[in-house]
């Protein structure tokens, strides 16, 4: 039952760690209007800008087509793969999860290809090699290992999906069930738990961070609205 405990801890760290970070970001004031202009002049415009940033990586597209292709393949592939995995946590399985099931299976290929491209850039492009730290490389290796071990089970050696689902449903309803003793599955799950554990203390914080980025989430209306942080408002009292 090591795995059950491991997933409880990992889930707790992930949720509490992220909640703490999100709270911390939201409580830290942004005293000045610093949207990167041209910027939307309305709230809905900002939501559209943010949506483009999160869904199609607009700024990255402007910047570098190679990073964009690999980055987007990886993220969109991962999104489909994660969505497909919902079938192990829902009973009955939601209709849309069933619909994307075949796409989700092959999306793993997108994900791993994207990750491999990003990893290759860390060695092949001198500028990216210069800025890469060991954790940058290990993070990609970790994600690739998760992807490959998952693909092994999807495409090569099937695991006991029925028991696996029973294990996770059991975790969710506090009714611990045995995990199938399949080495590939155990590697896959251990790596996923590791990823969950390091999420809130690593650069994976870019996921919540982007929503709090003042250059992207601020409305361009400084002449029309007085924008004032609490700590800065105190200065007005002295005048």
């Amino acid at each position: 039952m090591v795995y059950a405990g491991m997933f409880y801890v990992a889930a707790l760290v992930l949720v509490i760690g992220l909640a703490f970070k999100v709270l911390d970001y939201s409580r830290t004031p942004a005293p000045l209007k610093i949207p990167t202009t041209p910027a939307p002049t309305t709230r809905s415009g900002v939501m559209y800008r943010m949506a483009k940033e999160v869904v199609v990586f607009e700024s990255l597209f402007k910047s570098n087509k190679w990073i964009w292709v690999f980055g987007w393949l990886f993220h969109f592939g991962m999104f489909l793969v994660l969505a497909r995995h919902l079938r192990y946590f829902t009973e009955p399985v939601w209709l849309w999860v069933n619909i994307i099931q075949p796409f989700g299976k092959y999306a793993s290929l997108m994900m791993v290809i994207g990750l491999a491209g990003l990893l290759a850039r860390r060695f092949l492009v001198d500028r990216v090699r210069y800025i890469s730290t060991p954790s940058d490389i290990l993070m990609l290796v970790l994600l690739i290992a998760i992807g490959l071990s998952g693909m092994m089970m999807t495409f090569v050696v099937h695991t006991d999906i029925v028991s696996l689902k029973a294990f996770f449903m059991g975790l969710m309803y506090l009714d611990i069930q045995p995990l199938p003793q399949d080495p590939i599955l155990m590697v896959h799950l251990a790596l996923v738990a590791l990823l969950m554990l390091i999420f809130p203390i690593s650069k994976l914080l870019h996921a919540p961070g982007v929503f709090f980025s003042p250059t992207r989430n601020q409305v361009d209306n400084p002449r029309e609205q007085r924008h004032l942080a609490k700590w800065a408002a105190r200065l007005d009292q002295k005048n």
């Binding site: 970001y25 830290t28 004031p29 005293p31 570098n64 800025i131 940058d136 870019h206 003042p214 700590w231």
Partner: peptide, 18 residues
Amino acid sequence: GKYRSLKVFLDACVHCGA
């Protein structure tokens, strides 16, 4: 503590190279 920009920017970079 005073600038969200600084806090988020120091955390969020993934060294993508863009």
